[in-house]
């Protein structure tokens, strides 16, 4: 019979939320360290899900089920983590830039980042550069994610990065840009640190950025 770490990893992969909660509770009860549960079972499970999505073996509904499963288990872990200890990979502040009300893709990215172990502060749509800056000051995220669907709102990404710089916060946070009209070259031109073409790759990009940091 597989050990509990393997079992928990497997139920994250298949998106069985109830089983994940039961296993997590049992492991906590017998004294397994919450950090070990996170790093040896939950996060590796989501890594498998991400890899399968990239190879076309699993798709958004399954990824979301796994993300929800991961979230349920994380909720059980949080009270057991030491004060000040992050329940995951750090915080991401995310929003759609000013003038743009499109949020389907941005919300998918937010859910998948949460599922991968990031804490997510979702600012919603039409977020002004000033609100992004205020959220970075308040939440001290490791990553700021900006989304845009309209080509007319793309310049707001540049303005937001400028506002971060003016506030002296640019070096404290990695910036990711995404959305249908955004390309890698545009993101680089903006001065963003990361770009991804889809929600699954956004998770990989975010993990890559915090590894570099």
């Amino acid at each position: 019979m597989p050990d509990q770490f393997t079992q928990l990893r497997e139920v994250v992969i298949i998106g069985d939320g109830e089983a994940a909660k039961r296993l997590t509770a049992e492991m906590l009860e017998v004294g397994v360290a919450p950090r070990e549960i996170l790093e040896a079972a939950l996060l590796p499970g989501m890594d498998v899900v991400g890899a399968r999505m990239r190879s076309g073996e699993c798709f958004i509904p399954e990824v979301l089920l796994s993300a929800r499963t991961m979230q349920g288990a994380l909720e059980l872990l949080k009270p057991h983590l030491a004060e000040g200890e992050s329940a995951g990979l750090g915080t991401v502040v995310i929003g759609t830039v000013e003038g743009d009300l499109h949020d389907i893709g941005k919300n998918l990215v937010a859910m998948m980042l949460e599922g991968a172990g990031f804490g997510v502060v979702n600012l919603g749509t039409s977020v002004t550069p000033e609100r992004f800056v205020a959220a970075v000051k308040e939440h001290r995220p490791v990553i700021l994610g900006m989304s845009a669907l309209l080509t007319t709102t793309l310049p707001k990404m540049r303005e937001t990065i400028g506002a971060l710089r003016e506030a002296g916060l640019r070096d404290s946070v990695k910036v990711m840009a995404g959305g249908a009209p955004v390309t890698l070259s545009y993101a680089e031109e903006l001065g963003a640190d990361g770009y991804s073409a889809n929600a699954a790759m956004a998770v990989e990009t975010a993990k890559g950025l915090i590894r570099k940091a």
Binding site: I60, P61, L64, R68, D103, I104, G105, N107, L108
Partner: peptide, 10 residues
Amino acid sequence: PADLLPDGRI
């Protein structure tokens, strides 16, 4: 579904 999935209503 494009409205439901981002809300987690799988």
